[in-house]
């Protein structure tokens, strides 16, 4: 690993990494695979942890903001990779999509390399845009069912 790379790795803000890992975790697996194919990336890597399916216990809070309680489990898949150049990538996502976990871990690793711009433009940016459009449409559908109350004036005062 070169010094400049080391330096850049060091500078990587946790917040940025948190954002792209979360974006990848929320992605539709088939869509991610399509974007990955189109991005034409062929990194050399080894699997530190082959895609593995397990469960995560989801929690709620009594009254919405009180003491935590265990709500129930959700299936999840995780995967860890190491690129030939040394960067490690990790993925945790709900569901049982092993291909998605592997591709997400690869994207996480590549985001720490010179390929980050390419990954951002070809994979993350479309995911962000599509998610934003979906959320907007969901919000517009919800807004269409919002109750408009009509008030009636009664009496003189």
């Amino acid at each position: 690993m070169s010094n400049s790379l080391r330096h850049r790795n060091h500078k990587l803000s946790m917040e940025a990494r948190r954002a792209w890992m979360s974006q990848l975790a929320r992605a539709d697996g088939a869509r991610l695979a399509t974007l990955w194919e189109a991005a034409d990336l062929t990194p050399q890597f080894e699997l530190l942890r082959a895609p593995e399916i397990g469960a995560v216990m989801a929690r709620g809070r009594a009254g919405g903001d009180g003491a935590a309680f265990n709500l129930g489990e959700a299936t999840a898949t995780r995967c860890s990779v190491r690129l030939e150049s040394g960067e490690e990538g990790h993925a945790y996502a709900l569901g049982r999509d092993k291909r998605k976990a592997r591709l997400s871990a690869l994207c996480d690793a590549l985001m720490q390399t010179d390929a980050s711009t390419h990954v951002r433009e070809r994979i993350l940016a479309p995911l962000v845009a599509e998610e934003s459009a979906r959320r907007d449409d969901d919000a517009r559908k919800a807004a269409a069912t919002k109750v408009e109350f009509f008030t009636m004036t009664r009496g003189d005062d």
């Binding site: 397990g54 469960a55 929690r59 709620g60 919405g64 489990e73 959700a74 919800a142």
Partner: peptide, 23 residues
């Protein structure tokens, strides 16, 4: 089926105040 799954961990409590509500 769930008894066959390894437990990865406990999630943070969900924030229902930040819910994207549809109802």
């Amino acid at each position: 089926y769930r008894t066959t799954l390894p437990r990865f961990g406990y999630a943070n409590p969900i924030e229902t105040g930040a819910m994207a509500v549809f109802r």
